[in-house]
Design a binder for these strands. Structure first.
Length: 199
DNA sequence: TAATGGATGTTCT
DNA sequence: GAACATCCATTAT
């Protein structure tokens, strides 16, 4: 069953946790690609220095300030795209970064999209995930509640959920807003950012 | 297995 | 001009 708007209109870390076990579905060239979400991170607004929305609304992060349940796709590090889902309510920015999935349908398509292919590492990282699913900025702002190209479906909650600090950030490292399925084997290998120190 | 550094381009100061 | 929610190959242990 497709997730409805109300699922996303909640406290962002709660959405990030509840997305574990849900299915991400992508229609690419008429083919159905999908996988179970095994790793997410929560990003909020003016109180979260690691968030793109921390310094206020810009043309890049505008989607985070809009309705919940939409795709926020941005280009990072000169080479990669990252896929987020917006949360909370218009005017209160929030988004969940989808960091890894366990591939289910269209695995051979995903391997082809990725080019170099270690089979166990098709989508175990935010950049790898978007490349495997052929996601780029054309999907920025896509409404996942109604879209025919990209959406989320409910699943079964994993038995064991682990948390940690978020990966690859330099501020807001104290918050344990990364959520992943313990023992999954499809979780990214990144380590949480070290806790910030006073100079 | 762990650590390092290069590729690469958009965004914001 | 600096920073950046990354990935991968190469080098060192």
């Amino acid at each position: 069953m497709r997730l409805r708007r109300a699922f996303f209109e909640r406290y962002t870390p709660a959405v990030a946790r509840d997305l574990l076990g849900c299915r991400l579905v992508r229609i690419d060239g008429g083919r159905r690609l999908s996988g179970v979400i095994v790793e997410t991170e929560a990003y909020r607004g003016s109180r979260d220095p690691a968030s793109h929305a921390y310094a206020g609304r810009t043309s890049r992060n505008a989607v985070m300030f809009g309705p919940a349940g939409c795709a926020y796709v941005y280009f990072t590090m000169g080479m990669h795209h990252c896929l987020n889902v917006t949360t909370e309510f218009p005017g209160t920015p929030g988004a969940v970064l989808l960091r890894a999935i366990e591939p289910l349908e269209g695995v051979s398509e995903m391997v082809r999209n990725r080019g170099s292919g270690a089979p166990a590492h098709i989508a175990d990282g935010p950049g790898r995930l978007t490349k495997a699913l052929a996601i780029d900025r054309r999907l920025n702002g896509e409404d996942l509640v109604t879209s025919e190209a990209l959406w989320l479906e409910s699943g079964s909650r994993p038995a064991r959920i682990e948390t940690s600090g978020r990966i690859g950030i330099s501020k807001g490292t104290a918050r344990r807003w990364r959520f992943f399925v313990e023992g999954s084997g499809f979780v990214s290998s990144g380590r949480p950012a070290a806790k910030a120190q006073n100079p």
